[in-house]
Design a protein around this nucleic acid. Sequence first.
DNA 1: ACCTGAACACCGTTCAAGT
DNA 2: ACCTGAACACCGTTCAAGT
Lengths: 197, 197
Amino acid sequence: MTLGKRERLSVQDWTEAALQVLAHGGVPAVAVEPLAKSLGATKGSFYWHFADRNALLQATLELWERRDTDQVLAGIDETQDHATRLRSLVELALLSVQRGADAGAGSIELALQSSVSHPMVAAALQRVTSRRVAAMSELYAALGLSKARARDHALLAYTAYLGHLQMAHATPELLPRGRAFRTHVDRIVSVMVEFDS
Amino acid sequence: MTLGKRERLSVQDWTEAALQVLAHGGVPAVAVEPLAKSLGATKGSFYWHFADRNALLQATLELWERRDTDQVLAGIDETQDHATRLRSLVELALLSVQRGADAGAGSIELALQSSVSHPMVAAALQRVTSRRVAAMSELYAALGLSKARARDHALLAYTAYLGHLQMAHATPELLPRGRAFRTHVDRIVSVMVEFDS
DNA sequence: ACCTGAACACCGTTCAAGT
DNA sequence: ACCTGAACACCGTTCAAGT
């Protein structure tokens, strides 16, 4: 976890390190003293770069938002048709939950969901969620749903994603594994993507 | 929040107070010193009744589990048929999310989901979730689904509930309100309860 | 048996002093 | 400009001493 002895630390160094511990230990783990120790510096050094712990949290959240946006954009294959794009988007989200049970991108998101009580965290989550739901709405609308129904369906799909994320971390023993897991994901995707009326 | 001046505090008094703050401020808010202050006692008094903060948390979790089990049993009308029971179970769960945005039963559950990293919290959640999924599985099985499909469908429904709970607290602005909310809940319930093949 | 009060460790924050 | 080191507040934990 130690990043080696640097003569001087930058704001980026601290923020990067904070994002690391955020993924592992959640928001409470973004603590100044332990962070300083792992970087081989003192708390005083930290307070040169940041006003307080909240400023570090803010910078960390912004870093996460930037990377998350990039990742989602990179995950969509623009050459595919809308239906395929939608299906693979939902599928990728659900499968990504499985991958990084402890270290993946999903674990940062879960850590943030854990700390919604913190206003800054709530704001960051609100922005990212809003962006994702809007993107899915567009896809549903492109498939022929009315604006209202498209948004509603996007919300439902996102709700399923959030719940799946939660279960994968809180009670993974209850989720099917291996082949059964694929079947389960396939069923969710079907429910979320196929519709009528 | 102060429970008045009592001469002597019991384990129940501390546990009850802990459950209160758990609902409002989450697991981190279950702190010995503030709790002692609100009860008009000293930290030393606390440590007569409990080995440490973890022992208090454990007692609080057990209290929640007992009450949760009672509530769920009370919520099911045994005189109804299986389909109606299932539908009202899902519906009640989703609507309860709306009720107590800050104080309701759902807020304790959300607070616990927030702290899955804590092994004791994870264990408690695992027990409750397992119990609920099993109960729903039975209902699905009673409606004619195979054991495997019944369990899978119960998982899917529970996943939707968890995600809904999450959104209602983290990003409530994104969920529809009023009449549109009822429509949204109705749609989720339909997806979760109606099935074929 | 139950509680107080003082003590210590840990982390957030401040700031004077160093390079 | 960037960092150290010491100080203080807050909460978890211990424990000798009180009733």
